[in-house]
Nucleic acid binder design. Structure first.
Lengths: 225, 225
DNA sequence: CATCCACGTAATAATGCGGTAACAAAACAA
DNA sequence: TTGTTTTGTTACCGCATTATTACGTGGATG
């Protein structure tokens, strides 16, 4: 499953590194910025699913980022990182649209628990990209060049299976087991047929597939390009 | 906009009174319970927009209430009230679905800021718009082109569930669990039937639904259009 | 070069899911 | 109680989806 994306805006290198490592350990996709300017850029460029935001930053401070984000309609949860004894700032931050805060120095376990809780609240969307496509598992939708491509149930399950195992060779048997279920008796041909329709919806040249490649005598391999 | 409703479950009378007064001062509609049993009853009877929950309670403790609420599909933010030095309990509470906590003794200003922040998160106005409709969760009323459309209890719970998860694919099972409750045995068909009546009240063309779309083999997806 | 075999896919047939009407039961109100 | 509204179930139909069959194609192999 593609992980929820977290953006950390923090200027203290050691802390930044520690946060990044810990979050990545938990399976999140982490991007970082070490000042407010870069932070804003990253925030608007690729809005994350959650923002960890230091309040005291060079150039652009945390409040402005917070306000800018909400003004722009970004709704992801924001956790502020504050130094001790900034109670007034905390209240101000929460009023500007932040969701939570932790006071430095903080326990990493507590922070992780908060991140987890807030992300679950928001139902963080695992989303895969390949070719010109975007696959949204939460909404169960496939987009190609931004427009939706309708998938049938089987097609969707198959694509999901592929995407989650990108780069690995998959035998028809394993595909049948996972997508069709081991109880039913279905021909190999059915897999092929489903692959064909998938290709027609996903590939640029369905007859020269580059995303779903066939491996003779084995099955298929999905490439996350 | 009618006021957001807050439920306080707290057994210490003085604290309870103080919280109630302060929150009412801020314009919230407050109900209270002084033990876990009454708390659960109030919670399920008339789900509030936010829950203030003491962890240490006679009869039923805060964790159980928290878990029970989430299990029942209640999504309102929960703020835990904890005694000092219960860090482990805090983590546990957050994992059970709580959103935030304050440690006693706490500043009332801080608490109010958090209440405000969490309520805003949940939708500044507890009012949703989609299609030609306006749904007022606080008043529990649906309007279409300005005139009220009566909803039955089930219909309302279902619509509320949909609206709060707009854009996400929802399985019939999750719908059954959340709207009907996991204890009862109800058929998938019942969901369909309820969806049909909802569509007739909400959609422009009930036979070409655009708000409540069916996802074959899965369930439904509500689009906030 | 000829053969073989696995894969691709069109056409067709079968399946099963969801919509909904009609009925039954349950909850609720008077 | 009795009547009324809401809620759940059954049954059936229509239709999209899915499987199969059949055949074509191309690449590998000796």
């Amino acid at each position: 499953m593609s992980a929820a994306r977290v953006l950390i805006i923090e200027d203290e290198p050691a802390l930044l590194r520690g946060l990044k490592d810990n979050l990545e350990n938990e399976g999140y996709e982490v991007r970082t910025a070490n000042n407010g300017e870069k932070g804003l850029e990253a925030l608007f460029n690729q809005p994350p699913d959650l923002l960890l935001l230091d309040l005291m930053l060079p150039k652009v401070n945390g409040y402005e980022i917070c306000r800018a984000a909400r003004k722009r309609g970004l709704e992801m949860p924001i956790i502020m990182l504050t130094a001790k004894g900034q109670e007034e700032d905390i209240v101000r931050g929460l009023e500007l649209g932040a969701d939570d805060y932790v006071t430095k120095p903080f326990g990493i376990r507590e922070l992780l628990a908060r991140v987890k809780a807030l992300l679950r609240r928001n139902g963080a969307a695992p989303e895969y990209r390949f070719g010109r496509c975007r696959l949204d598992l939460t909404a169960r939708r496939l987009f190609r060049d931004g427009t939706e491509v309708p998938l049938t149930a089987k097609e969707f399950r198959l694509l999901e299976f592929f995407v989650k195992r990108a780069g690995r060779a998959l035998t028809r048997d394993s595909i049948l087991d996972a997508v069709w279920g081991q109880e039913v008796m279905v021909t190999d041909r059915s897999v092929d047929r489903c692959v064909t329709t998938l290709r027609s919806k996903v590939e640029d040249e369905p007859h020269n597939p580059v995303l779903i490649r066939t491996i003779r005598d084995i099955g298929y391999r999905f490439e996350a390009l």
